[in-house]
Amino acid sequence: MISYFIEFTFLALLIIGLTAFLGPITNGIGEKLFSRRKDVNYFVKQSAKTQTGWRPVGGRKK
């Protein structure tokens, strides 16, 4: 009976572990295969380009 619970626990941990890591693994594979190789800082650069000439707002004046 104890061996049944040990096997059940092992199987449950295996299924939970596979479920937990299957999403990130397939996401990584998908990004490697289907990404368009854009610059990592593309959105940061675009935001900085949009904000050129803006006045700073808020905060304390020194």
Score class of each variant (00 low, 15 high):
residue 31 E to R: 11
residue 29 I to L: 13
residue 11 L to I: 02
residue 2 I to M: 06
residue 48 A to C: 10
residue 44 V to H: 08
residue 40 V to Y: 00
residue 31 E to H: 12
residue 47 S to Y: 00
residue 16 I to R: 02
residue 34 F to D: 02
residue 51 Q to L: 12
residue 38 K to F: 05
residue 8 F to P: 04
residue 50 T to D: 14
residue 30 G to F: 08
residue 5 F to S: 15
residue 15 I to N: 00
residue 44 V to F: 13
residue 42 Y to C: 01
residue 33 L to R: 05
residue 61 K to W: 07
residue 19 T to Q: 10
residue 5 F to E: 15
residue 29 I to Q: 11
residue 13 L to A: 01
residue 36 R to C: 02
residue 36 R to M: 03
residue 53 G to R: 03
residue 28 G to W: 01
residue 26 T to I: 13
residue 47 S to M: 05
residue 56 P to Q: 14
residue 40 V to T: 10
residue 36 R to W: 06
residue 7 E to R: 06
residue 41 N to E: 13
residue 34 F to M: 03
residue 54 W to G: 03
residue 54 W to H: 07
residue 25 I to A: 07
residue 2 I to N: 08
residue 14 L to H: 00
residue 6 I to Q: 11
residue 14 L to V: 01
residue 27 N to E: 12
residue 7 E to W: 05
residue 15 I to F: 04
residue 15 I to S: 01
residue 18 L to K: 02
residue 13 L to S: 01
residue 27 N to T: 13
residue 53 G to H: 12
residue 20 A to F: 01
residue 11 L to D: 05
residue 29 I to G: 04
residue 5 F to Q: 15
residue 9 T to W: 14
residue 57 V to H: 09
residue 47 S to I: 10
residue 6 I to P: 05
residue 13 L to W: 00
residue 52 T to M: 15
residue 58 G to W: 00
